[in-house]
Write a protein that binds this DNA or RNA. Structure first.
Lengths: 194, 194
DNA sequence: ACTTAAAAACAGAACGAGCGGTCTGTAAAG
DNA sequence: CTTTACAGACCGCTCGTTCTGTTTTTAAGT
């Protein structure tokens, strides 16, 4: 039940945006009653926060997938970025997450509910990349820095869709970014990936 | 009058977000009557669209500033990016613009009002950078591609503020990105800047 | 230069709709 | 018998929009 509501919420956030996502719309899309929703999620912020946590746990992304799988080696940087775009950021869940992040910026209640989780996730994501990749810059945490940059670029790209007339241009940007990043971020530095 | 309303709208978008920006809030902040607003802007979308156009015209940014000023040479890439972040994207106007872009993604009425202008602005901005900078990649429009990437990165960065515990980390990302971009985007290629 | 008609700019009340949140009621589970 | 899961009516509020006035500006005619 909770899962059904959250799934509907993701679809609504992606298609309608945060502003137009209401209990009524989610209710209709999920095919559940009003009472069912409010029972599990007393406020809109609670619903969105729960949705965000679901999205975050699913979106630790290609990085950790590789890390978790004992057989897998870390993906080449180019492929890693292309997948992060196509499968994670530019997906219903990824776009819903962008809506939530934007809402967080100005909704204090929502931010309070998500603050700790957001920081945790960021730390986790950075730690994950650092285990398999290294940067070429002088700083010891250069890989984390570069990966954070990549995530921010991809998130910004979600907003750019409406800017360009030719959808192909987006793909070219991702590819160019990935090629540039390849010169800075490299696989498996001195650490062993056993 | 129009200008006063738009100024208030920018502040509201920045501080409250698109969802919470209403005629009532703008009215109160601008100190004008309801009738005055609705006379000039019949719908909310019209108001936001007018705000966006104002922001776009002010935000052609450091690139064109340099271009327009007959005395000025193009800024070094690192400085260009640092200024684009601090003065343009990470400012009330820049953050308001992000709110509008996010709203555009899911609001068809607003998108229809802005579609042409957004495409125009994108084309203009890309043309501007191409007159003073060149990319090192194989494509002929590499500079445009790289500058579009930079804008998207900076926009994504607006959402990241709430992610990090240490504000300094944002600054490090901008600096690292600018240093990386310096290796790809260079000033004044074969063209003359008289 | 003065009158006057039309138009634009502003003021603010009023509206129906949809919102988030609450509350009472029912059914199943422990 | 208490607790949890769901159902759905209800409420006050705020939203975007519309409408009716009032003031100011504009422009024309003579």
């Amino acid at each position: 039940m909770k899962a059904k509501v959250i799934r509907a919420a993701i679809t609504c956030l992606d298609k309608l945006g945060y502003a137009e996502t209401s209990f009524a719309k989610i209710q209709a899309r999920a095919g559940v009653s009003r009472g069912a929703i409010t029972h599990h999620f007393p406020t809109k912020q609670a619903l969105v926060a729960a949705t965000a946590m679901e999205l975050l746990s699913n979106a630790l992304g290609p990085v950790e997938r590789r890390l978790g799988a004992p057989a897998g080696e870390p993906a080449p940087v180019h492929e890693l970025i292309m997948k992060a775009w196509g499968k994670v950021v530019n997906s219903p869940g990824g776009r819903a997450m962008v809506e939530i992040l934007v809402a967080c910026r100005t909704d204090p209640d929502l931010y309070d509910l998500l603050k700790d989780q957001l920081h945790d996730w960021d730390r986790q994501s950075r730690a994950a990349i650092a285990t398999s990749y290294a940067g070429t810059g002088p700083e010891p945490d250069d890989a984390e820095l570069l990966w954070s940059m990549t995530r921010n670029f991809l998130r910004g790209l979600v907003l750019h869709d409406k800017f360009v007339s030719d959808p192909e241009y987006i793909a070219r940007m991702v590819d160019r970014f990935a090629r540039m990043m390849e010169t800075q971020l490299i696989v498996a530095p001195d650490k062993e990936t056993t």
